[in-house]
Nucleic acid binder design. Sequence first.
DNA 1: AAGTGGTCTAGACCACTTT
DNA 2: AAGTGGTCTAGACCACTTC
Lengths: 260, 260
Amino acid sequence: MNQTVTPPPATPQAASSGPGASSPTFSPLYQQIKALMMQSLQSGEWKPGELIPSEVELALRYKVSQGTVRKAIDELSADNLVVRRQGKGTFVATHHEARAQFRFLKLMPDSGDAHQPENRIVEVKRLRGPAEVARVLDIKAGDSVVCIKRVQFFDGVPTIVEEIWLPGAIFKGLTAERLAEYKGPMYGLFETEFATPMVRATEKLKAVLVDSSAAAHLNIKPGTPVLSVERVAYTYGDRPVELRRAIYVTASHHYHNELS
Amino acid sequence: MNQTVTPPPATPQAASSGPGASSPTFSPLYQQIKALMMQSLQSGEWKPGELIPSEVELALRYKVSQGTVRKAIDELSADNLVVRRQGKGTFVATHHEARAQFRFLKLMPDSGDAHQPENRIVEVKRLRGPAEVARVLDIKAGDSVVCIKRVQFFDGVPTIVEEIWLPGAIFKGLTAERLAEYKGPMYGLFETEFATPMVRATEKLKAVLVDSSAAAHLNIKPGTPVLSVERVAYTYGDRPVELRRAIYVTASHHYHNELS
DNA sequence: AAGTGGTCTAGACCACTTT
DNA sequence: AAGTGGTCTAGACCACTTC
């Protein structure tokens, strides 16, 4: 007699009768709840920044105990998909706060605190995706992609050049003007305008010598050693939605990492 | 009427009577339990690899409910201090398994899987700590420190050179022979022979040009761009116990990082 | 005062491992 | 069968925020 929770306004099996679980396609109740809640996030029922229903409401909706809902939310919170605020409620995570910037940008000044970097969009173009980019973004080679080239300034000094590749199908109305006028982290724009929040990312770092093009943008001598950072970012459902190739100048900054 | 748990064989206040907590020096009960358990880890009462008492035993010992002990262990587990094994028990985390190697070593081959790297100890010396090293290790300048220089080989190719600085007071009997004869991750040796498990670490990465000394050890041309990795590792109580300055060759390897 | 998340308990049963 | 961690419930009270 397994417990299986079915979509929101439907009927779960043997919820209030007995605890535990077993048999076909077993998974703990709280995992099922978590999956349902992730659907609500993915479908846009609950949007970034919004308040989600309270724990008691959710317990009623899913016909489980509050403790089970709590455990589901605990995991969503650990995954950075939601944020709890005591006394207020649980909110869908966003990238709008200035501090959220540094969740994915790990470049820090060697001394002192990190100020908010400034951006300059160099160009935005739409083209048919090169095979390699398409492979990473999990789309067909030749499908439309958006390519953004920009420079980031730390305290007025050009420090990062990057090329950002996005699937054209998702980022339809994305233009240079739209990017230029938007204030705050780029990922903030992505989640509000294109309904695709970045949930996690992987990076590959190498030390290389700058090429002449990047050197010109960064105002450094060709042949300077720089950090090459290739990032792949994912949304809900672990779908890759961004490939970013960046060059970081590490003369007076460093890539900071916490291991645990 | 706050709940305060006192050391193991002592008497807590108002434990089985009422839940909740408040008033002077407030902290949740499970946090107090966690702190007590960390003392047991730190003091060596529970050594790496060993089985710790079961949840029910701990609940009796601390005079709290099993659920409260569980929550304390949940956090210790999340902090990688302890590992749960269903049906068997909870064990103190170790660095002995080969796979544990890559918790702190994030260098991966560009293609294919990571084999176990081989080490060659170049030299081990004891000296009076340079001011900068002493500052990082939180000891007095001039105090004894151990400096280990070694090269790591990936598939026979020299890929990492590093200088490892350790407080002499803790690593008393550490010799080149001891290091050379030890099999497995160096951190495994540290925790079994010197009772100092590495719990977390921070790293600062920069792209630099190899100096001639490192180039010779790595068998690459002077002036090649390489990754400079400076690591500070911490034991229980966030005490720094290692400063490691490494050079990674990233021609056919990369530093892999997961952001979330 | 009412609502929200956070803590704590007590008891039940399940899944896994060992004896 | 016995012991361990893992899940689930129901109910109580606490801490924080808002009305």
